[in-house]
Design a protein around this nucleic acid. Sequence first.
DNA 1: GGCTAAATGTAGCTTCAGCTACACTTTAAC
DNA 2: GTTAAAGTGTAGCTGAAGCTACATTTAGCC
Lengths: 162, 162
Amino acid sequence: MTARGTESVGQGAGRRRGRAKHLLDVAAKERARNFRATRDARKTEIAEDYVELIADLIDSGGEARTVDIADRLGVSHATVVKTVARIKALGLVTSRPYRGIFLTERGRAIANASRARHEVILAFLRAIGVSEATAQRDAEGMEHHCSPETLAAFVRVIRSRR
Amino acid sequence: MTARGTESVGQGAGRRRGRAKHLLDVAAKERARNFRATRDARKTEIAEDYVELIADLIDSGGEARTVDIADRLGVSHATVVKTVARIKALGLVTSRPYRGIFLTERGRAIANASRARHEVILAFLRAIGVSEATAQRDAEGMEHHCSPETLAAFVRVIRSRR
DNA sequence: GGCTAAATGTAGCTTCAGCTACACTTTAAC
DNA sequence: GTTAAAGTGTAGCTGAAGCTACATTTAGCC
């Protein structure tokens, strides 16, 4: 706060250094928090994508294999191996060499929550008239950035359109 | 397709190797494309966040400085310097040592588009009853994952609620 | 005009997600 | 039972985003 900036609060657009901090900082801090939250979401979304997909594979076919995950995600199998090791360290899955990949209780809980959110967003997008293909695509991206409050609002919209 | 997998299409849930490819692959490829699109979005969203913020700073205060960007984004100034170098290489901004950061025409166009999307999402979230703070937060994250089609649907919802 | 604090830039590290290339197991077909 | 293809694992690279620590430049104040 030792800014010897011009305290001339009549800023305007032309000054070069020293801005009126104080008030503006509040909004800035607020925004920084939002960006931070988004960045944090970015870090967890890959883990969520994996457990959600693994749950799908297990539930619909019996087992989750490295190749299947790689195919569905569109990445190389080596990337899958590495990422699975990471989420294993996080306690979300278990695996033994050359055996399949399984969810821990925590992993299963996250997968279920993820899937529920995904379904809500998908249903919501369909409800407001978005085409199936686009809904599928956008839901994948939006999924990790919708707070419970927003999801609740989505549910209200879905209900109101039925 | 030299898979000597059991061509027994009556798959079920118990088999270990060799799955019925063919039909299932279509859905898998489709999904892979969605994941790929989301990953690609992830790569561009930081660049978009930067140009959008730089545009805001320029428009509302006259100049975009490294510290201001760092403050607003909640990252260290070193990170900003590095990222600005990257988006400069992409042709979105210009800068000279110890001088401010400015948008190129392309950068300005992207910033404008980004801001427009942001505003639509914000208005939409407010319209369906999401609180201001949450709307601000979620808009930040959703912004990069809404296709034009979805945005158009949002606009329709906003209109229908006025 | 000098001095000092703020701003900026640089160096070098970490983690993560992606890749290719190569090595090793499993398993299914014969 | 062998054997070769499919699947899995490992090594080592890249690029991006983040950090801290240190060096340099700028500019406001006296």
